[in-house]
Design a protein around this nucleic acid. Structure first.
Length: 432
DNA sequence: CTGGGGAGGGGGCCC
DNA sequence: GGGGCCCCCTCCCCA
């Protein structure tokens, strides 16, 4: 068998060897694919910039962006929904308009779609993330999350190294054939492991409990006893996405940086009017009120602004602190801890064990053989004395629910309160 | 091993 | 928007 070339020359046909096949296979796989994708994307980007074959007009805040519906369709869940609803074969350009976010924000996202380069910095990351959430672009959201975590990590390092953080980070997608989910998982995994290692290092150095920056929310009702955050002087410094301190005002600051577009359309009311809900930029949770979102953000930032005066345990909410204090340290519940019967102020006594207090009825008190002993950790108080203590605690209740400096608190607490300074541990002082 | 209760965390919603 | 209440859930401890 012979092969006739274009110039008329004849060559004998040779069965391809294994080496030939390997060469072809190698050449047609990764490199060629990557080059082809890159080349194609560049061509599309050039066409977009020259407004060639653009069949989609996007109006954002009065500024017109022209793009290809195929590209938008393939990049955004929102456009996928939008474009699949319209006439598929229509020659008319598709149209979309957004007033919810800034033109520059959309330009950043559109540049990413056409180039794989996402230009993030501390001033635009939240807005880009929110816009991406609106446009249902999970990969952009993942990059923004990674950027925020990276910024927090940089600030942690900076606290010890005192170096200037980078002003911005350009996230560039590696064209390695991975789909969005794989890439997102990889980015998040990488960032997570980096943050984890930094946290472990700082824990060893500072012997403090970890703050995990912008973390995944704990499952509802999940308690993490080891995550109690201790107040430090740095806690009062405000958060900056570029240099985020392990502090207490993170939710407030994050909340302040939230752009207006964080509001998303939710389900429709009975009268067909849409309800506005506020979506958390870090998870899928939505709330009706913006103030509730602020509260929710604390479960991502890990901040616990309300320390217990008695045991230094910290809480995310004042009401949780109050409940804790009344239950653990004030014995407000008129229930005998031993027999569980309801009691009154008159027929019960408060037993103090360390900083913990609980009530025992007179019967259980006698059975337990508890007597007041000077200098003992376990003692009981006469009702009169108890009343005086509670009045003082009431005063504390009104003046400051644990927002004061803990050193001062220890002094102010006085001997009557029988409040002990606990070790720097998250465990409750044992009452057993 | 299991069930009950205490403690704490988080969401919804009212004032 | 903040404070507060109620409810539900989960974890932990203990009998």
């Amino acid at each position: 068998m012979e092969i006739v070339c274009e110039n008329g020359a004849r060559r004998p046909y040779r069965t391809p060897s294994d080496a030939d096949r390997q060469l072809v296979r190698r050449w047609t796989s990764a490199d060629m694919s990557a080059n082809h994708h890159s080349y194609l994307l560049k061509q599309l980007d050039q066409q977009r910039r020259q407004e060639l074959f653009c069949d989609c007009n996007v109006l954002v805040g009065g500024r017109l962006f022209r793009a290809h519906r195929n590209v938008l369709f393939g990049s955004s869940g929102y456009f996928r929904m939008l474009l699949s609803q319209g006439a598929r074969d229509s020659l008319e350009p598709a149209r979309a308009s957004f007033d919810a976010f800034a033109p520059d924000t959309f330009a950043t996202i559109l540049d990413f779609v056409y180039s794989g380069h996402l230009a993030l910095d501390s001033t635009n990351v939240i807005e880009v993330m929110s816009a991406a959430s609106y446009l249902q672009m999970d990969n952009v959201i993942a990059y923004c999350k990674a950027f925020i975590e990276s910024s927090l990590e940089i600030s942690t390092k900076e606290a010890t190294e005192d170096t200037q953080p980078p002003q911005s980070i350009m996230w560039e997608r590696q064209d390695d054939g991975k789909d969005d989910d794989e890439y997102e998982a990889e980015v998040m995994s990488e960032q997570s492991s980096q943050c984890q290692s930094v946290l472990e290092t700082s824990l060893k150095e500072e012997q403090v409990t970890p703050f995990d920056g912008v973390s995944e929310p704990r499952r509802r009702g999940t308690r993490k006893r080891s995550a109690t955050h201790r107040y430090t002087p740095d806690d009062s410094s405000p958060i900056d996405l570029q240099r985020a301190p392990a502090g207490t005002q993170k939710a407030d600051e994050l909340y302040a940086t939230l752009p207006t577009i964080i509001g998303v359309m939710g389900v429709f009311n009975k009268d067909s009017t849409p309800t506005m809900r506020f979506k958390c930029p870090f998870c899928t949770h939505t709330v009706k009120r913006k103030a509730d979102l602020k509260r929710h953000l604390r479960c991502h930032t890990g901040e616990r602004p309300y320390p217990c005066q008695a045991c230094s345990k910290r809480f995310t909410r004042l009401e949780h602190l109050r409940s804790h204090f009344e239950t653990i340290h004030q014995a407000r519940k008129l229930v005998c801890r031993k027999c569980k019967r309801h009691v009154t102020e008159q027929n019960s006594r408060v037993v103090c064990e360390g900083s913990r207090r609980y009530r025992l009825c007179e019967v259980c008190l006698q059975e337990s053989g508890l007597v007041a002993r000077e200098g003992s950790d376990t003692n009981t108080e006469e009702p009169g004395l108890l009343l005086g203590v509670e009045e003082e605690l009431e005063g504390n209740h009104n003046s400051s629910w644990g927002m004061e400096d803990e050193d001062d608190l220890a002094e102010d607490s006085g001997t009557d309160l029988i409040i002990q300074e606990v070790e720097d541990s998250d465990e409750e002082p044992s009452a057993k």
